[in-house]
Computed example of a mutant assay.
Amino acid sequence: MGILDLFNRTPSPAKFARIVMQAARERGFDGPMEFDASNFRIVMGKNDVVNLHNFYHDYCQAPRAKRDEVVARYSHLFVRSDIPDSFEAARGNLLPVLRTRAFLQAARFAPLLDAGVKETEFAMADFSADTALLLAYDTEHLTRVLGMEQLAAWGVSLEEASAIAIDNLRDLAAEKFVQLSPTQFASDWNDAYDSSRLLLADLVHRVAGPQPVAMIPTRGRMLLSATRGKADLLALLQNAKAAIDQEGRRVSMLMYEFVDGRALPYRPEDEEAASLLADLQRIALQEDYAEQKQLLEQVHEKQGVDLFVATYMLYKGEDERLFSVATWTEGVDALLPRTDKLAFVGMNDAGETRSAGVLDWERVEAAAGHLMQLDPDSYPPRYRVKRFPDLASLGLQ
């Protein structure tokens, strides 16, 4: 250990992994453990992994005197107790979890990166454009997201299990909200299921009245606005951004309203609020695309595939609003992210690259959509482009 390590409040990812593995040993875990630095996780045998991103975030955010408590809170990740064979024995521990759809992509790529990892078909349903509804088996020492294989073994349908899980969530604890202002409320269960309570419309209405707007920016926070006025929606967005900055574990960057007892996406009528909401969504997409790019490049390297994964880039316009851009380069087989604009890079007669202009995505799609093949399995979406469009057809030279 160098002298600087003694004064460094934030351990490096590798040092943090060593801290975690030592703590696991001290708590009695005697199985294999290996630090996978490229994916920032600890691999335990063939199919068990502990992802360290959220653990590391909470550890670094905590005061030094509280870091042992963070380690203790996460120690259940290394307890490999079995899920009951009987559904009757398990049903009381089922709970619903809402997760960003990007959460699923790491699981999809895992078997491609490690032949020893079995592909998992999660017990899940689409919830919104950026969020999926999954099921978890939850005890004091174990929280495991379930697959369809487990439901099949129990002989229960996804719909039946989901209904039971939501009833269990309703029975967990009494209402716990902090009133931030006369019209703003923040959940305060802090039990990792705050965001899941978006599924409980009756609870939301009791707290925030007949026309609430909700956000679930993180796993540990549901935010409510009792009205839809401009000032209140801007306050809701500010609170959502603060929750993400402080807590991590992003879930959804949508606003929700409640129709016939269901949470549905809501777009603010006020254009300033709508623009700020769209900016938060672009920032979230930039993070998701960056993670996806890293995973795709690892898979391509392993498979020997020469396929460029384009970057999702954000810029500010003259109006200070964000817009996204990706580059489509002549002669390059690529996967493009869905962006607001596409920048074209052509080749001159000498074989040198040159900027050919920037166009809105919709205009490009209308003229050259036949060259853009959507990958049906990708989230966020990507488009395979093998051929370069005729620039003249796009009004470019």
Results as ranks from 00 to 15, higher is better:
residue 145 V to P: 05
residue 98 L to H: 03
residue 153 A to K: 15
residue 146 L to D: 02
residue 103 F to Q: 07
residue 103 F to C: 05
residue 142 L to A: 12
residue 114 D to R: 13
residue 137 Y to A: 00
residue 156 V to Y: 08
residue 124 M to A: 13
residue 109 F to S: 12
residue 152 A to Y: 02
residue 124 M to I: 08
residue 140 E to C: 01
residue 144 R to M: 01
residue 141 H to P: 02
residue 145 V to S: 11
residue 100 T to H: 09
residue 109 F to V: 15
residue 143 T to N: 00
residue 149 E to C: 00
residue 124 M to G: 04
residue 126 D to M: 03
residue 119 E to H: 07
residue 143 T to D: 02
residue 150 Q to L: 10
residue 141 H to G: 09
residue 152 A to F: 07
residue 118 K to A: 14
residue 124 M to E: 14
residue 99 R to L: 10
residue 145 V to F: 10
residue 123 A to Q: 08
residue 113 L to Y: 05
residue 162 S to D: 01
residue 109 F to G: 11
residue 132 A to Q: 06
residue 128 S to I: 04
residue 105 Q to F: 14
residue 144 R to Y: 00
residue 154 W to E: 00
residue 122 F to S: 04
residue 123 A to H: 07
residue 162 S to K: 03
residue 162 S to P: 01
residue 132 A to R: 03
residue 160 E to V: 09
residue 158 L to V: 01
residue 135 L to M: 08
residue 130 D to I: 03
residue 120 T to A: 10
residue 112 L to I: 02
residue 146 L to N: 00
residue 153 A to F: 00
residue 143 T to Y: 00
residue 147 G to V: 06
residue 129 A to Y: 00
residue 99 R to T: 01
residue 143 T to S: 09
residue 150 Q to D: 08
residue 109 F to E: 12
residue 156 V to T: 12
residue 104 L to V: 14
residue 158 L to Q: 03
residue 99 R to E: 09
residue 103 F to A: 10
residue 111 P to H: 08
residue 110 A to T: 08
residue 101 R to Y: 08
residue 109 F to T: 13
residue 100 T to S: 15
residue 126 D to S: 14
residue 131 T to N: 12
residue 135 L to R: 06
residue 150 Q to T: 15
residue 119 E to Y: 05
residue 152 A to Q: 06
residue 97 V to N: 01
residue 106 A to N: 11
residue 157 S to N: 04
residue 139 T to I: 06
residue 150 Q to Y: 03
residue 110 A to M: 12
residue 112 L to P: 03
residue 114 D to H: 07
residue 131 T to V: 03
residue 127 F to S: 02
residue 147 G to A: 03
residue 145 V to H: 11
residue 100 T to V: 10
residue 148 M to N: 11
residue 157 S to D: 09
residue 114 D to F: 12
residue 96 P to F: 11
residue 158 L to Y: 13
residue 151 L to Y: 04
residue 140 E to I: 06
residue 147 G to S: 15
residue 97 V to W: 03
residue 111 P to I: 07
residue 147 G to L: 10
residue 156 V to L: 01
residue 131 T to R: 00
residue 141 H to E: 14
residue 125 A to V: 10
residue 117 V to G: 02
residue 131 T to S: 04
residue 133 L to G: 08
residue 109 F to Q: 12
residue 152 A to G: 02
residue 141 H to I: 06
residue 132 A to P: 12
residue 147 G to Q: 04
residue 108 R to M: 06
residue 104 L to G: 01
residue 123 A to E: 04
residue 122 F to Q: 10
residue 119 E to C: 02
residue 140 E to L: 12
residue 121 E to M: 06
residue 102 A to Y: 05
residue 98 L to I: 08
residue 120 T to Q: 14
residue 96 P to M: 11
residue 107 A to Q: 09
residue 138 D to A: 02
